[in-house]
Design a protein around this nucleic acid. Structure first.
Lengths: 132, 132
DNA sequence: TTACTCTCTGGAGTTAACTCCAAGTCAAGT
DNA sequence: ACTTGACTTGGAGTTAACTCCAGAGAGTAA
């Protein structure tokens, strides 16, 4: 599988795929006899995994660590699991913040509805002030 | 309230507070007779709001739009509400992605537990291969 | 052979969001 | 009057994560 196809398949630019490999965010991909990257199934799984994790904001640095540990073999199983657990924890915390913001936005939208209603009733003028 | 106090109160650097004001992420703060920023209650509410929204990743550009609309008065109530609704939608979508990732991480951690157990039983060697 | 397309590498450029800095002002303390 | 400390402004510098580019090589088509 050449880079064009992988790029298409995962909607990542060829530059990004090369960049990810360069910095160790995915393991090195084998080259064919012409020197072109030949992505195997396993490489694609890495690309998908990394795209997914980056998509929700896991830091590049952390994912590079994970890849490095992975390449060191079974001695790092425990460490890798701890790394994942830590990311799980942080993701959970971020989601809690987001949930709070969701609710805050809902409250705000309700207040906007009230204000819009009030403005209609008083022919365009509303004495209600709030902020932000 | 001087900038030092606001910086302390919201754990944002003075530079960041000035930067936010410069780019319109919070409305302009009044200066006292010496030319120093004198934050009022309302300014603080803006700072807190913006910090909260930035904290979960709402884009600076969008928030600047919101502030600008706010300053234009009641004619923009509807537009502001739509802006908030759109952000609510996007936040919900992001949380759904994150939920998926949380579950994926949980699955992965379970597999790591299995592998760690297997490695123990077979005195340090595990034939199981998986990736990433 | 010439032309064309795809890909390669190393390195420079870009964008968002800060973060730092230099030179200057103001007011309070000594 | 002088020093000190907090603050001002405009502008330059930084960081993360890409994104773009120039020059070169391999394979295919005419």
């Amino acid at each position: 599988m050449l880079i064009a196809e992988v790029s298409e398949k995962f909607d990542l630019s060829q530059d990004t795929l090369r960049y990810y490999e360069r910095i160790g965010l995915i393991p090195r991909v084998n080259r064919n006899k012409s020197g072109l990257r030949d992505y195997l199934e396993e490489d694609c799984r890495w690309v998908e995994f990394i795209k997914c994790m980056r998509g929700v904001g896991l830091p590049v640095e952390t994912l590079i660590d994970y890849v490095r540990l992975f390449q060191q073999g079974d001695e790092t199983l425990e460490t890798r699991k701890e790394l994942l657990a830590e990311q799980h924890k942080q993701l959970t915390a971020r989601m809690a913040d987001m949930q709070k913001v969701l609710e805050r936005l809902e409250g705000k939208m309700d207040r906007y509805d009230e204000m819009i209603g009030a403005a209609r009733q008083t022919s365009g003028f509303s004495p209600v002030i709030f902020s932000p």
